[in-house]
Design a binder for these strands. Structure first.
Lengths: 109, 109
DNA sequence: CCAAATAATCGTTAATCTACGATAAACGAT
DNA sequence: ATCGTTTATCGTAGATTAACGATTATTTGG
C-alpha cells in the first residue's frame, strides 16, 4: 500500500510502527510459525532439524518459515558448525507485546 | 498446513489456539488493517466511508480489508440504514492480547 | 581428503492476497 | 416509484505465499 498526503496520522502508531507491527503480525500469521515461536519459548533454543521433526513439513519449507521469522526480527539464528541454532529475539518480542498492548489496552470492555 | 500424529503438543498453545492466534495475526498482517484497528480504537466507531477517506485505497479494497478483520473476529459491523457501522470486538481483542502475553511474557530478557 | 550430515537456496506449482473498476443490493429521501 | 448514497460483491490481473523436491554449500568426523 502506498501512502499519500491524504493520510496525516493513521492512528496511534507512527507509519514506521504501523509497518513494523504489520510485518511482525504477518510473520506470525501462519500456524507453523506460531508453533515455532511457541516451541522456542518452551525450549529456549534449538536447531532447524528439531523443528523439522516437530512439524509435518519438509525441511526446505521449515527453513523458509524460519527465514520469515528472522526477517521479521522475531528470532535469531546463528551457525554452529553444520547446524544453525535458533532462539527468540527477546527484545523484539517485548516490543511486539508492548505494541499489542498499546493497540488494545485502555479499551473499556 | 495439515497436522498429523507426529505432533503431540506443538507448544504452549492448543491446536485451536494456535490456529486462532495465527488467523488473528494474519488479519493484522497488513498496514491498512493495522491502521483501521488503530483508527477504531481512537474514535470508537465509524462507517466504512470514513475509512475510505482515511486510506489511499479504493472503496472495494477497504471493504475487503474490513471483511478480513471481521472474519478474524477483531471487529464487528452492523448495518445502519444504507451505511455499516464498524467497531472493535473488544473481548476478542482482549483475548488476542492475552495470547500475545502468554507467548512472550515470562521470558527473562 | 572424502563421506555424511545439516541447512539454505533454487526452481516450480498451486493457492491466496491485494488491488481495482464495475456492478448489484439496500436504504432514505424526494 | 425513482434517484442518490452507501456498501458489498464480482471478475480480474498481478504479486506474493506455501509447499515440495533437487541441488548446493558448509562443516565435521573418519
Amino acid at each position: 500500500m502506498k501512502y499519500n498526503s491524504k493520510m496525516p496520522s493513521p492512528g496511534l502508531f507512527s507509519k514506521d510502527d504501523t509497518e513494523l507491527f504489520a510485518a511482525m503480525c504477518k510473520a506470525l500469521g501462519h500456524p507453523a510459525r506460531v508453533m515455532i515461536i511457541n516451541y522456542l519459548k518452551k525450549i529456549d533454543r534449538c536447531f532447524c532439524g528439531d523443528i523439522v521433526e516437530l512439524l509435518p513439513l519438509a525441511q526446505s519449507t521449515v527453513s523458509q518459515h524460519l527465514k520469515s521469522l528472522k526477517q521479521a526480527g522475531l528470532i535469531k539464528g546463528e551457525v554452529e558448525g553444520p547446524k544453525t541454532c535458533y532462539c527468540l529475539d527477546k527484545p523484539r518480542l517485548e516490543k511486539f507485546i508492548l505494541m499489542v498492548e498499546a493497540l488494545g489496552r485502555s479499551i473499556q470492555p
